[in-house]
């Protein structure tokens, strides 16, 4: 899922400083599951903003609401009137949701309440780790189900580099070396010979480097 992290209050306060009535809009999907921008977090942020603005003698008209997803029109459209009733919106959805809102409500300032951080998973309660970089050309079949693009600091295709020590990455001693993980996993699978072939230079055109990516499915069109 998409993992996000709440922005510092100071930054959000600054964004909405000149607006009287503000809606804090939570998103009930990815950012709710990673506790960054769901219903509860939207409530907390709204409460923080109200207190902070109260202390500054500013308007405390900060309301909160949460919709299931801010990345689909079907969920955004029903709150048209609510959005019309405020001067600005702080969206605690990921960057996709913020843009969905901005596209739907052209004349309304929409501000991000979270930093969209990575695609990952909670490996244990309270610990979220990156797993995928959406490079558009999955090679997990070759690397034992462990992604070197996302998990190696240098996105090496032919690791591990000389900085792999005791299973850890030299860039951060708390981070496992992705290529050590790949080596260990392929070893368990009895497929170490996979590592003997030189993996060719990666085609990055399917990644963000190729420009805006888009998928068309005629069968799904109306």
């Amino acid at each position: 899922m998409i993992i996000a992290q709440r922005k510092p209050l100071e930054e959000i306060k600054e964004m909405v400083a000149s607006y009287e009535k503000v809606l804090v809009l939570g998103c009930g999907t990815c950012v709710a599951v990673c506790f960054a921008g769901g219903e509860k977090e939207a409530k907390l942020l709204a409460s923080e903003l109200r207190m902070a603005r109260q202390m500054e003698g500013k308007s405390t008209q900060i309301i909160e609401h949460t919709i299931q997803r801010q990345c689909e029109w079907e969920f955004i459209d029903p709150i048209k009137e609510l959005v019309a009733s405020v001067d600005a919106v702080v969206s605690t959805a990921c960057g996709i949701g913020v843009q969905g809102m901005a596209e739907r409500f052209e004349d309304k300032p929409i501000f991000p309440g979270v930093n969209t951080t990575f695609l990952g998973m909670p490996v244990q309660p309270g610990e979220f780790v990156e797993r995928c970089q959406a490079c558009g050309d999955c090679i997990l079949d070759l690397t034992g189900g462990i992604c070197p693009v996302a998990r190696c600091a240098k996105s090496l295709m032919n690791g591990p580099c000389g900085g792999s020590q005791n299973g850890k990455c030299e860039v951060n001693p708390e981070t496992p070396c992705a290529w050590q993980l790949i080596y260990d996993r392929l070893s368990k699978l009895g497929q170490l010979e996979r590592l003997l072939d030189v993996m060719p230079a990666k085609n990055w055109s399917t990644s963000r480097d190729g420009g805006l990516r888009k998928i068309i499915r005629e069968d799904l069109k109306l």
């Binding site: 509860k40 409530k43 907390l44 409460s47 923080e48 109200r50 207190m51 109260q54």
Partner: peptide, 11 residues
Amino acid sequence: VDVHHILNAFE
């Protein structure tokens, strides 16, 4: 006790 309850009290 939710964090929200605590903030609510202060608010």
